[in-house]
Nucleic acid binder design. Structure first.
Lengths: 254, 254
DNA sequence: CGACTGCTTGAAGGATTTCAAGACGGGTGG
DNA sequence: CCACCCGTCTTGAAATCCTTCAAGCAGTCG
């Protein structure tokens, strides 16, 4: 159940309305999203074909700023234009689980519920487009194809969430960290520059809370990867993947 | 990322097409799903208002039977009419993570990808409606409202997946088991009979692989709950929740 | 009635956490 | 421009929860 509870099971805790799902929603992200679609291009929020471009308005948030909090009334959805955001849920006693990190092109707050289901905070300085729920509704009504894109994007999120469940439930610390680094690397696709240098703008405790570990374990694991010559840790939150194949082995599956 | 990788990040590993998402899709499950909607009623796959009722055809599967396997070409989506199904992903070395358990009304295989992303097996004897992807597409084209229902249902799945991440990443064994039992209990809503007796048709190792534990730990934890008079273990895979409040405390948040 | 399979229980081991200092680095102010 | 400061990261050692390894036990099914 849990992961597949029927709508009915949720009905008593969430009034219909947009809520909390985070998902990637880029101009090229729809059903027809061809293989290799966009990558770089898809990240262009100002793509002329972007149906969302004219909605709402963008705002710059400083680093370590709250965008919205779990439980807030959910009146808008958001799209990250640049920078990085973390989404997390907290247990009553303060334990935190980071659901994911969002980058340019990713959307959040898109779901049917009256309140946001998690908290969104910026990691770095971030530009975020805020789109009132009503405007999005109107767009969905006007463009059925757009509704399909949302479904497709949400579905992709679900796939990613399932991979994360495997990681959290069945992987060791080393596998978790290796998987995380490889995902970051696949994700960026930043075209320019070394394709093996990745950005780690978030702190160790963010990584830990995403992987179900402690900061100490993350640090120790990274140190071990460094000693094994699989990675090189650079200043300024950057990191080189020196042996992607070995990392993939360590990651044990995707 | 992981959990929120942009579509583009998936584009190179999954050709568009229906795939893997599992979600609850019942007649009353749409956007308008009122609070308290259906529960019992929503579980009625033959509800007259059910747009899916006339699609595909139903088949009975024996217990412990494979419905489809991760990697199979994904040509159909499925809806559980009765019984229970488990969905899981495996790591190359055999470690298994059960993504969720499906009951009457839940759908699976609904996503945009060429292959199924996980394996579906029956736990008990189960009746399953198989719906060719093309028929579902046609229905979505014909009934925009239906597409919204799918989006809503998928979104609910995502919410559940996020809760499961918190469980897997940040809860202790006792909290995991308590949470699992409470979810099962909330889920069933079987109207009739003791509202504190729940069905546990799956084995200990299924529970373990869903919660990120071992069968021994699950067994020990259940024994401890029994000793504490919080539950009573009955024959035939049934179980009484004797102190729901205490369990909720133990569960530490939803 | 015996063998099988799954559940329970015990004891030992290990991976990760917890507790506790240091080291590093980056930013600020003198 | 350098030094100080503070937060973060790293490293160490002890503790712990959970796993692993190993038997018993129990319900089932031929």
């Amino acid at each position: 159940m849990s992961t597949h509870a029927a709508i009915a099971a949720h009905a008593n805790r969430a009034v219909p309305g947009y809520l909390v799902s985070a998902l990637a929603m880029t101009p090229n992200a729809g059903m027809g999203a061809a293989l290799g679609a966009g990558v770089g291009a898809a990240i262009q929020p100002r793509n002329p074909a972007d149906p969302l471009a004219s909605l709402g308005h963008a705002k710059v948030y400083e680093r370590e700023t709250t965008v919205f909090t779990e439980g807030d009334a959910a009146g808008s959805v958001f799209r990250v234009m640049s920078g990085m955001v973390r989404l997390y849920k907290m247990l009553p006693d303060g334990r935190r689980q980071i659901i994911g990190f969002l980058q340019a092109g990713d959307m959040m707050g898109l779901a049917f519920a009256a309140q946001y289901l998690y908290t969104a905070e910026t990691v770095t300085a971030t530009t975020i487009q805020r789109i009132p729920r009503l405007e999005l509704d109107a767009l969905m009504d006007a463009q059925p194809a757009f509704a399909r894109k949302l479904l497709s994007a949400t579905t992709s999120e679900l796939m990613a969430a399932q991979d994360q469940m495997v990681l959290l439930g069945r992987k060791t610390a080393a596998e978790k960290v290796a998987t995380f680094l490889l995902r970051l690397s696949d994700r960026k696709c930043s075209g320019k520059g070394d394709d093996h240098t990745i950005d780690l703008p978030m702190g160790r405790s963010d990584i830990a809370d995403h992987l179900g570990l402690t900061t100490e374990t993350v640090s120790r694991t990274l140190t071990k990867l460094k000693s094994s010559r699989l990675i090189r840790i650079l200043v300024g939150g950057k990191l080189d993947l020196l042996d992607r194949d070995a990392l993939a082995d360590l990651a044990g599956g995707f």
